[in-house]
Structure formats: C-alpha cells, structure tokens
C-alpha cells in the first residue's frame, strides 16, 4: 500500500473535530444531567448525583412526561409499520410506469421539501373546519407519514434500482405465483433494507416536532412536552430528560443496526444466495 499523504492527517483531524462538534454538546448535557442537587444549567458541577433523574420519576409539577413518552412510542411503532408496508408497496408499484406515477413522484418530493409547519397548519385547519378533533393517533399520525414515507420510498427506489430481476423470472419460470414470488424471493432479498426503512420510520416519528405541533391535540407527544419544558424549566431536569430520550433513541438505533447486521450475516451463514440478488 502506498504511504498516506499528508492531507490524510489534516483531513483526519478535521473529521475528528467534526465528530466532536456533532457529539460534544450531547455528551456535555449527559454529564451535566448528573449535576448535584444545587447545581445549575452549566459547569461547574456541584457534586454528582442522580437527583435530576429521580425528579423525572416523581410527580411532575408540569406536564406528563411518561404519558407523552408512551404516546410517542406507540405512535412511532404505528408510523414505522405503516411506513414499511406502504414503502414496499410503493416501491413495487414504481418498478413499472403507471398512470399518475410521475405525479406521485413529484408529490413525494413535495412532501419531503414542504416546510413542516404547512403540514401542521393545513391538517389542523382541515380537522378543525370539518369538526373533527385533532389527536396524535389520527391527524398526528397522518402528518408524520408525510415526513417518513418519502424517506422510505427513496430507500425503496434505491433498492429496486439495484434489484436483479432474473431471480423473479426464475421463480416465475418454476411456476411460482406472483404472491409466492413476492413472499419467497423478493422480500428475502430486500429484507435488510426494510430494517433501514423501519429505522427511519420509527426514529423520525419519535423525534418529530413541527408536523405534530398543531396536529397532536390535547395529549402531547414527547418532543412537544420537552419543548414545553424549555420555556418554564430552568433546572438540569431538562438535561436528565434529554439524556434519557437520547439514550433511548441510541438503543433503538443500535437495535435496528444490529438486526440489519444479523440478517445480512445469517444469509451468508445459511448459505442462501438471497442477498446476491442485488446488482
């Protein structure tokens, strides 16, 4: 191997700084959330304690953190399942041209680039003008789909662009029905990518703020609750909550990533050639 050029070391240092910039602040509030009972929102640490975490588990003066966490979690799962199913269906549909396919494609792009507050405002207006109540599981759910579906679909487009159709043809030649082909050939090949779609579906929903702002109704999701806290909570309890939900997010990300890794490895081990259907 040729020796590393000098630029390699400069760029490595730049990259390290970038990672520090990305993660530094989050790590800082993680440290500060162990602030002693008398400590404030910044350094120095007044001792270390679990005081602020304990605070979270006690009766809340404002809001309902655990209720909102439960709602966010359920909503995240709902959005995740819907995103995966609809993205696969959409991805399959887009392999052929169909009536309205280019309109749908532009709708998907619009959905991705439209300012979130417009979805919030528009959906909120539709519900209020037609006398329906906004609720996180109806209007909130639909609004979040406008953010997760484009990502799911774009991933599916990328997957099917690299998909080797001869595997399907082989299955059909062997007499498989279209459902059998889908179930035993297509889905196993695209399986690991679906875990990626699920990851996007869950985490983007779990953290979504702007699109749920006017569409969640009287029961807040966790990001709305946290934002509410920023205006009236001035103790490290805010950091403790931030740390906990970030840890939860990281656990979920780790879970999805290990699932993806596991399913890829399993394929290699079991000796199926399913994963090779990608060009």
């Amino acid at each position: 191997m040729e020796p590393r050029p000098r630029s390699f070391y400069i760029l490595s240092a730049f990259f390290a700084l970038f990672l520090l910039f990305l993660y530094g602040p989050t790590i800082t509030i993680a440290i500060l959330s162990f602030q002693g009972p008398g400590g404030g929102l910044t350094f120095p640490m007044q001792g270390t304690s679990l005081h602020w975490f304990r605070d979270l588990f006690e009766q809340q003066a404002v809001g309902d953190i655990w209720g909102s966490f439960r709602r966010s979690f359920v909503l995240g799962l709902m959005v995740m399942v819907t995103t995966v199913v609809l993205s696969v269906m959409g991805g399959l549909a887009f392999r052929k041209k169909f009536r309205g396919s280019s309109i749908l494609f532009y709708l998907i792009i619009t959905s991705l680039v439209i300012p979130s507050i417009l979805i919030s405002l528009g959906v909120g207006l539709i519900f209020s003008q037609s006398g329906l109540n906004v609720h996180w599981s109806t209007s909130g759910f639909g609004s979040q789909l406008t953010w997760t579906l484009p990502f799911g679909l774009l991933i599916m487009f990328a997957v099917f662009n690299r998909f080797d159709k001869s595997y399907e043809e082989a299955a059909r030649d062997l007499g498989a029905t279209s459902w059998q082909t889908l179930r035993h050939v297509v889905l196993p090949i695209i399986g690991p990518s679906l875990i990626g779609v699920a990851l996007f579906g869950f985490t983007l929903s779990y953290d979504e703020f702007a699109r749920t702002l006017l569409t969640a109704g009287s029961y807040n999701t966790l990001p709305l609750e946290i934002f509410g806290m920023t205006t009236n909570v001035t103790t490290p309890v805010l950091y403790a909550l931030g740390t906990l939900t970030t840890v939860f997010s990281l656990l979920m990300i780790g879970l999805f990533l290990s699932l993806a890794l596991w399913s890829t490895r399993r394929k290699a081990r079991v000796g199926s050639d399913a994963g090779k259907g990608m060009l």
């Binding site: 989050t26 996007f200 990001p223 939900t245 990281l250």
Partner: peptide, 8 residues
C-alpha cells in the same frame, strides 16, 4: 445524530 431529537 439524524435519528435523535433535534430539540435536544
């Protein structure tokens, strides 16, 4: 970080 909360 993209998959964690912007607000936090």
């Amino acid at each position: 970080p993209f998959w964690t909360s912007n607000i936090i």
